[in-house]
């Protein structure tokens, strides 16, 4: 039973869904709430734990749904390891007669490794840039008073409401006029203006006690020092969560890279693999490309799973 309580507190912090009615609460309060939730968990009455038959039924149901959920991943991996043309069902799903020929095709071509590099650049620069910019802005919005602060903050936040598709075309026109089509900066720069990130940073930093900064100021620390030595370490949790999400968004982004990256050399993995699909490349090669693109995100998920699930639960951040 101790295992059970541990799992519950790990995975499902109390509900702090950021709807308009109920803004996200601070991380500190969240921790306190979670501790409380953990204690409550110990008192689950026997009756609420369900009957044996109920448990079996639940197990079977969950098992079936889980199998259906991972089936595409399984098929993706197995078919990518088959010789070209092995697409018949169900024969080709059996895990033998495997060959890595599709992978040597994919990794041996110039394209896929280049796309991998592009995706890494887009994702890593995107994460670092977004985190730095939103931390700076979030700190200022939360702890500094300056004229127009509220108006500026709410106008930032209102941008969450404007769908991406309204701004996409003018953004493209702007990037095109600035000669940014088919360049890294044209790809990355617009993605750094992230309203959600600024909002979450501000909410988090607002929850930090002022005394921490005041104390440093009295000790004669400069603003730069305060930001680097105090703010940044304190906001590590939100940076981890936000960083994981921004990474996911960039890695999986499709429409913008599709529009901006025109030459084969400037594609990201998603755009490149979509183009492979359209070019009648054999299925095993396309899927090998998909696996290559999926493995890093899978690894990131394994490592950052806690931040992802907590992030969703605590802030309703979009997956």
């Amino acid at each position: 039973m101790s295992l059970d309580t541990h799992e519950v507190t790990e995975i499902t912090p109390p509900p702090i869904v950021a709807t308009e009615d109920e803004p996200a609460r601070s991380r500190l309060r969240l921790r306190r709430d979670r501790r409380r939730a953990g204690r409550e968990q110990d008192t689950v009455p026997y009756a609420l734990r369900g009957t044996r038959r109920g448990k079996v039924l639940r197990g079977v149901l969950l098992g079936v749904v889980a199998l259906a959920t991972i089936f595409p991943f399984y098929a993706m991996v197995v078919l990518s390891l088959k010789p070209s043309g092995a697409v018949e069902f169900p024969g080709s799903l059996l895990p033998w007669n495997l060959t890595t020929s599709a992978y040597s095709d994919v990794l041996g071509s110039q394209d896929v490794p280049q796309w991998l590099i592009n995706t890494l650049i887009y994702s890593i620069v995107g994460v670092l840039g977004t985190l730095l910019l939103s931390a700076l802005a979030g700190y200022a919005f939360a702890k500094k008073r300056f004229p127009g602060r509220e108006a500026m903050f709410w106008s930032f936040l209102s941008m969450v409401m404007v769908p991406y598709h309204v701004t996409m075309i003018p953004t493209f026109v702007l990037i095109a006029k600035m000669n940014g089509v088919d360049t890294y900066w044209g790809l990355i720069l617009p993605s750094l203006a992230n309203a959600q990130a600024v909002f979450l940073m501000r909410q988090f930093i607002q929850g930090l006690p002022d005394e921490l900064f005041e104390a440093a100021k009295i000790d004669g620390a400069s603003e730069f020092q305060i930001f680097v030595r105090i703010v940044l370490p304190l906001i590590k949790p939100i940076m981890a969560t936000l960083g994981t999400f921004v990474f996911l968004w960039h890695w999986n982004d499709f429409l913008w890279p599709l529009i901006v990256g025109q030459s084969t050399d400037m594609r990201t993995l998603t755009v490149g693999i979509a183009s492979l699909q359209q070019q009648n490349v054999p299925l095993n090669v396309v899927l090998a490309g998909s696996v290559v693109a999926f493995v890093p995100i899978f690894m990131a998920y394994l490592v950052g799973q806690r931040y992802v699930t907590e992030g969703v639960a605590a802030t309703g951040i979009k997956g």
């Binding site: 749904v65 959920t69 595409p72 991943f73 899978f298």
Partner: peptide
């Protein structure tokens, strides 16, 4: 397991769903 598809790009998933 249930959350895994959320972090997976739909482009990548689509390549295998075409076969499915």
């Amino acid at each position: 397991i249930f959350f895994l598809p959320v972090v997976t790009s739909l482009v990548l998933a689509s390549t295998v769903f075409i076969w499915i």
